[in-house]
Design a protein around this nucleic acid. Structure first.
Lengths: 219, 219
DNA sequence: TTAGTATCGATATAATATTATCGATATAAA
DNA sequence: TTTATATCGATAATATTATATCGATACTAA
């Protein structure tokens, strides 16, 4: 009854901030900090205290006046909300440079997330092992996916191949897709898609820069 | 006076959608489509027409009743708003697997964006050349950055080193930072920071999955 | 023990973003 | 030429998110 496992719909903007709080708390914990207030979190992360408090309330975390939140309890509330409690195994398709980078990304382990295997259509990639993750032939995906009950798929293939891979993932039992290809995937609405579009993201920076430096607009 | 270069503050949610429209239009153009309506865009991208129309209005694009928007003109409006018109050169620090993946990312070129050089503190990485981008010793960053008037920096170093790198970038003249390290950077507010946090992003998917599959919560 | 204060939690207000509505206009068909 | 209709552009209504305010509570120090 401590960390109430109530499932609730968390606003997306809040949801985007929660992992930031978690990472911040990891650092605090390492430094031996016991308790932390909204005011301090907000100051360190460039936010405002009220917003932090409201965000944290949505995770079921409770603080104490004058003291703030107990770091360890707050982290439990956050990790529960963010799904770090349960081990998450993912299958990745597309062992190009980005796919390889993700395979080698150590940080996922800290959150109980792992890339169980990678798959690629090209002979050249198959057989490699990156960061302990083997690259298997794409044809093995469906059977292995069913057998291992993997529910998370990562798409790192070029745009042209992405929909096809998504279809294969869905028919193999994948229920949530992390998509790095710059296309809008068409999947049943029982399947959750989260798009990661690096170029799109960079564009935001370009626009912000442009907007804040209008003088550079001379041409 | 056709594509009015007015600089205006575009709401962040809209700004995030604009590159998606652009990518979509690229595809349409390739397929030889001349005109496209909000309704079609919305249908294909999983949005609603009114929102698309409102977003596009902010770019200064004008459409015609019954016909929709002319693809080529719409793309010009978008590329202008998103800053694809001017060549953008970036300096990247941290030639680990993620840094290398970015260096090899062909797609940036389509948007007039390039990684001019990469920098790394380790001897092992220096001297490599990935996707045509050389890896130089970190010590060369300040002088080269000043000399080449590079204004965009990409941080791909571990969390511990990120602030230090950011400081160096700022003092070298960098004015906009694309940060892949999971830390909140402390920079002057004349410098724009855009954070890319892969773990945080993945967490959103975990939460969405968890929220939509409450039965898997049994433990 | 009591007064002072930092902080939370809840409620209220304001700002922002989304969605709905409707008149105006350009094309197509009668 | 006239009528019908798809679509835009603008305005209005709604929903969502962010911020401000304030009472309640727990710690600190006199």
């Amino acid at each position: 009854m401590d960390t109430d496992q109530k499932i609730m719909q968390i606003p997306l903007p809040t949801l985007k901030r929660l992992p930031i709080y978690y990472q911040y708390l990891t650092k605090m914990e390492r430094e031996g900090v016991r308790d932390v207030s909204c005011a301090k979190i907000a100051r360190d992360l460039g936010l405002v205290a009220v917003q932090v408090r409201k965000d944290l309330q949505l995770t079921g975390a409770v603080g104490r006046p004058k003291t703030g939140y107990q770091v360890s309890r707050l982290m439990r509330a956050l990790s529960s909300t963010l799904g770090y409690d349960n081990k998450t195994e993912m299958f990745l398709v597309g062992a190009g440079s980005l796919g390889k980078a993700l395979m080698g990304y150590k940080r996922f382990q800290e959150y109980n997330i792992g890339i169980a295997a990678a798959f690629d259509a090209s002979e050249a990639a198959v057989g490699l092992e990156i960061g302990g993750t083997p690259v298997l032939p794409l044809s093995k995906f469906p059977s292995l996916c069913h057998r291992m009950h993997v529910k998370f798929g990562v798409i790192c293939v070029p745009a042209e191949a992405a929909q096809e891979v998504a279809d294969m993932m869905v028919s193999s039992g994948i229920e949530a897709i992390w998509n790095f290809a710059p296309v809008t995937l068409d999947v049943p609405d029982t399947v959750i898609v989260h798009n990661e579009n690096l170029t799109a993201s960079l564009s935001i920076l370009l626009n912000k820069y442009k907007t804040s430096h209008p003088e550079s607009e001379r041409d």
